[in-house]
Amino acid sequence: MSAPHTRPTQTPPERPTRGKRGTRRGGGFSWFTERYDRFVLPAPAFLLVVLLLVFPVAFTLYMSLHSWNGGLRPPEFVGLDNFARTLEDARFWGGVLRTGYFVGLAVGMQVVLGVAAALVFHRKFVGRGAARAFFLFPMIATPAAIALVWKMMFDPTLGVLSYLSQAVGGPPITWTSDPNLVIPALAMIDTWQWTPLVMLIVLAGLAALPHEPYEAARIDGAGELRVLFSITLPLLRPVVLTAAMFRLIDCIKTFDTIMIITAGGPGHSSEILNLYAFNQNLSFLNFGYGSALLVWLTLLVFGVAILLTIARRKGATSS
């Protein structure tokens, strides 16, 4: 089954004629379900979302307007004070900047490598299936377990990476202990883990590319590189944008790996906004302030999602 890279352009289904006599069977209840099947069928899903989301969302919004440390005293209303304090909090701004740095670096590398890998896997060669399965492992292996392996490989005492680097005459690699290198190191680990996803998405895109431009290029006698840069990559743009969008959204919310490997350190050098919010809530028990941070984080994720959706739409209409 080949995965479509865009939804098959389908004429929107005709509005079903409601309560058509022919479909009306039996008594009241089945008449109801027949008539409102579009609401009845997704009702459990909708209820689930309400059940799972409403309390956490309400709790976070409520807490963000209060000051509470979890004790026996009730939360104290403080208005927008928590939000005002975030604006003066150097650690908050640091977290925002680090989020941008981490996400930019990680997603950038993933997209470049993912496209490159997709071009390789798009070719036919012996053992492609097995190689592709192997390439996918990092994406589906349990992050909490793999993070421990990375932690061990970066360990100052028993770190194999440091040994390998020194063996070829390089410096000792203690990146996760170096405030300047910790984010690149974590971005590298994220890239290790998620390049396969970008590869898969781009691979599906490659499979769905039209043949005509290639025919034309062949007639023109264009070289392979030229074809790559002037035909393949431009055509892939929407797909790459999609892949980048999904990675961006999830990357902002990265938690397990950073928590396990550095817990935000050394210092606060790898404390992205998500971790800072976690610390304020679960380590410091500042539920009010921590909730305000979560509100900002959520706004950031939604903002990015909306911007990228707009970008994608524009791309779709202009190409």
């Binding site: 979302v49 309390f55 956490p56 976070t60 959204i249 919310k253 919010a277 539920f287 959520t298």
Partner: peptide, 18 residues
């Protein structure tokens, strides 16, 4: 879109309320 929000919200926000 309304179901998609479940995917966008940061999981950290659920821990304490849950």
């Amino acid at each position: 879109v309304s179901l998609l929000t479940a995917r966008l919200l940061p999981a950290v926000a659920f821990l304490v309320p849950f």
